[in-house]
Design a protein around this nucleic acid. Structure first.
Length: 305
DNA sequence: CCCCAGGGCCATA
DNA sequence: TATGGCCATGGG
């Protein structure tokens, strides 16, 4: 009985593959924000003010969510399940997107190869913005290394079975750091400045996700994001995709996007905005998913068996 | 040694 | 509005 109260099952929606999601989360960068072993994933996350250690696994009829670090109420368990559903974008009906993919000349195979892959999000706006700033204009591998240093320097962690599961740092903690503290973590001066500024905005509640969510459309949300120093078109659209869940975002100028489109027959190596728009025009309302699947297509490897 | 990487700001015209 | 310099570091 006690055991059942710390576990909840999320039924699989149609077109959902935990294997594909795991593949994305474990694609070789050793992301410090979760730990994967076999088909189980551990992730520390503050949910409704409580630091929880989630264990996500695969059952016969759905994902199983367990709380590993404490006993929680049914209410909290439901909140954790809701958080996971949002993180993995499980509530979205992918039928329309797959119909569009099947009708496309180049990408119809994607509905087979990556079937059930969801647009894994970054629900926390502060985390998403920090990650964008860190990752700007550097190799993804180096970006992950810098993120790990950042998280391990400023973040708390939950210990479980000999593993430290880090929570993303609180803005108020980072806001107290000096630029030199960040230089020591291999931040450039620009990036240190951006991060400290954004941390202060969050720490003083001058910036938060709620007000952005309530703006009527993608254009308004992009405009509000672009007003933040350190946020340009690429970051605004990336955050739109991963955090605000706008479905019509295209991070123009993205190196991976250019690489993926450039590899398709009939494209120039570095497609310009017009070329990108022309290709995306057949995917109205699903641009964000198309971007995500194009990124996926860059990593040739099939899902590891 | 050179160019590029999941960019963006700022000065200049 | 459009372009160019600059940032900092690792990989090819």
């Amino acid at each position: 009985m006690a055991r059942e109260s710390t576990k909840i099952v999320l039924p699989f929606p149609p077109h959902f593959s935990w294997q594909e999601c795991l593949w994305f989360l474990d694609r070789g960068y050793n992301d410090c924000m979760h730990r994967i072993q076999g088909t189980n994933l551990w992730k520390a996350q503050v949910i409704e003010g409580q630091p929880l250690l989630l264990k996500i696994g695969e059952g016969a009829e759905g994902l199983t969510i367990a709380i590993e670090n404490k006993k929680v109420s049914q209410h909290d368990l439901k909140a954790a399940a809701d958080w996971v559903r949002a993180w993995l974008d499980m509530d979205r009906d992918l039928d329309p997107f797959y119909r569009l993919l099947n009708g496309s000349a180049h990408l119809s195979q994607a509905t087979q190869h990556y079937h059930g892959l969801r647009l894994i999000g970054i629900p926390d706006l502060y985390e998403a913005l920090c990650w964008c700033i860190i990752g700007q204009q550097i190799h993804l591998r180096f970006a992950h290394s810098v993120k790990r240093q950042f998280v391990q320097t400023f973040g708390r962690y939950l210990e479980h079975e000999g593993h430290a599961h880090y929570l993303f740092p609180e803005p108020a903690v980072v806001a107290q750091a000096s630029p030199e503290d960040l230089y020591a973590l291999q931040f450039s001066r620009q990036k240190a400045d951006y991060i400290l500024h954004i941390s202060r905005l969050f720490a003083t509640a001058a910036l938060s996700k709620g007000p952005l969510d309530s703006l009527p459309g993608t254009a308004e949300k992009m405009k509000a994001l672009l007003a933040v120093r350190g946020v340009g078109p690429w970051t605004a659209n990336y955050v739109g995709m991963k955090t605000l869940r706008c479905m019509d975002c295209i991070p123009y100028g993205d190196a991976g996007l250019h690489q993926a489109l450039g590899a398709l027959p009939g494209f120039t190596a570095k497609p310009g905005k017009e070329e990108v728009d022309a290709y995306f025009s057949a995917f109205k309302g699903w641009e964000s998913y198309l971007v995500f699947y194009l990124w996926r297509s860059l990593c040739a490897g099939p899902p590891t068996p």
